[in-house]
Amino acid sequence: MTVTDNSINAAASASISLTVNGEQHRLELAADTPLLWVLRDHLGMTGTKFGCGIAQCGACTVHVDGRATRSCMMPVEAVDGATITTIEGLAPRRDHVLQTLWLEMNVPQCGYCQSGMLMAAAALLDDIPAPTDADIDARVSNICRCGTYPRVRAAIHRAAAARNGGQ
């Protein structure tokens, strides 16, 4: 084993400002740190998950200025000054229509991919109030190994109907 004491080496660091779930943060850290790890390690917000690290699985999906974004490959310097919404900030009282239906329809199995799934679905509903199956296929391409897909799809359709009916 080799041990070092340079844990405060600040080489290649950048000064970044982020607004996360309405709260402003200033951070000094390596500019290439992916947004995912900034959220999880630096800000302690662990609802956004690490799944693949190459923007394939979508477990890390957050909203960056309102757009669903896979945060695991997004260097934090690229979102300097941006407004970020994570699963923790999707709805203050866990009452987003999707969350309500996710509970009612018992969507999650292990649950690990579900924050990303919800963030992708929420952005979809914001953009397309009444999505077709093809819209859902295209916009919610997250991977769920437990196979919750049929319930995810059904819950999105019901959420769209509930929202549109409520307007």
Partner: peptide, 23 residues
Amino acid sequence: ASPAKLQLPGMVDGSAAYGIDVK
């Protein structure tokens, strides 16, 4: 009855803690 999993609420608001979420 078909109650949902007791851990479900945390799975939809990000508060459920998996191994990787331990701090």
